[in-house]
């Protein structure tokens, strides 16, 4: 304790990249559990991972910036359609298709962000719905490009790195998706703790205060929307690659609303919250919908009410509090 003579404030215990490594390991471990325990459900788990990208993306704008949106599927859908169309027109390399989805999602994110973040509160929410519906309408009408209500089918991507072909058990798709998720998650962990990410959280807390320290808010939110669009676009492209079809459901209002529910369930403002919400909601839906196809939505509603009443900040919040307590105790000793 001799090095604190100048600063007085003790340094946080900081092992570089510890958080990132932990994040990667946890996701890989969860993936391994899925792989070994549910080998017949890999197609479902792959879809889950695709949706996880969309929820993470939504978390960036809603959880970290406080932007209310019910049209976030637009970014996901545009990524999915772009990757699907590119594949049908002859781009078969999966990594290239991901890049296509990423770029399309980014562009869509920047456009939506430029529109939606101009406003606050209810106008913002309504505008987000309008943007989502516009994209859904376009996907339906431009049937020469998107296949209209039949959707795009016949998406047959080539082998990953020229080695691993996609199989009917979704093994390749699952591992490929999981790998992309790990990379994205680690990058996002860095991103949300960066000065840029921290400033976004500040803007969410009090935008007038942010202005009063000299921040121009609008451009930042648009950039954040672009990043979120990139993440959603990757998810869309992954889903297109792994399922081989892209339908109108990928841009639907229901999709937008569902991912918002997942985010609230898990806890907005935490990357882990987004992930937890996706996993719990999707698995719950998968099991309950199979057991009772008519009433499963009722049960989802019930689950959500319970969580909002007993853990209003999402399931991740108690975990975070516990962790903070644990760490404080550790440093006090």
């Amino acid at each position: 304790m001799s090095d604190i003579a100048v600063t007085h404030v003790p340094h946080k215990r900081n092992i570089p990249f510890a958080q990132e490594a932990a994040g990667a390991l946890v996701i890989l471990a969860l993936g391994a559990i899925g792989w070994f325990l549910y080998p017949d459900d890999l197609a479902f788990l792959t879809r889950l991972i695709g949706i996880a990208f969309l929820v993470l993306s939504l978390d960036l704008v809603t959880g970290y910036c406080g932007v209310a949106t019910l049209g976030h599927a637009a970014q996901f859908g545009v990524g999915a359609y772009a990757a699907g169309i590119a594949c049908i027109r002859g781009v078969s390399d999966p990594v290239a298709l991901l890049a296509v989805g990423l770029c399309a999602g980014t562009v869509m994110g920047l456009i939506s962000g430029a529109l939606i973040t101009r406003f606050r509160g209810l106008p913002q929410l309504v505008l987000s719905i309008a943007v989502g519906q516009l994209i859904a309408g376009l996907a339906n009408k431009l049937s020469w490009l998107t296949g209209g209500s039949d959707g795009l089918s016949g998406i047959e991507p080539g082998k990953v790195f020229g080695v691993f072909g996609f199989d009917m058990y979704s093994r390749t798709a699952f591992v490929f998706s999981l790998g992309v998720l790990v990379i994205t998650f680690v990058v996002l962990q860095r991103f949300v703790r960066s000065p840029f990410g921290l400033m976004c959280r500040g803007i969410k807390d009090d935008d007038l205060r942010a202005k009063m320290i000299g921040v121009s808010i609008y451009p930042r939110l648009v950039v954040m929307y672009g990043v979120a669009g990139a993440v959603a676009g990757i998810g869309g492209a992954l889903t297109a690659i792994s399922t081989g079809v892209v339908g109108l459901d990928s841009v639907s209002f229901e999709r937008s609303a569902e991912v918002l529910v997942m985010l609230v369930l898990g806890g907005a403002g935490h990357l882990w919250g987004a992930l937890a919400g996706t996993v719990i909601f999707m698995i719950f839906e998968h099991i309950v919908a199979a057991a009772n196809p008519f009433h499963w939505m009722t049960l989802v509603g019930l689950l959500l009410i319970l969580i909002v009443v007993f853990a209003p900040r999402g399931l991740i919040e108690p975990v975070v509090l516990l962790w903070a307590k644990f760490k404080r105790k550790g440093s006090a000793v």
Binding site: R190, S194, P195, L198, I213
Partner: peptide, 18 residues
Amino acid sequence: ALAIMQRKRITRRFFSSS
């Protein structure tokens, strides 16, 4: 830190821990 970083024009950094 946010005020300091804003003054120093480094809040556009995306990847350093803040």
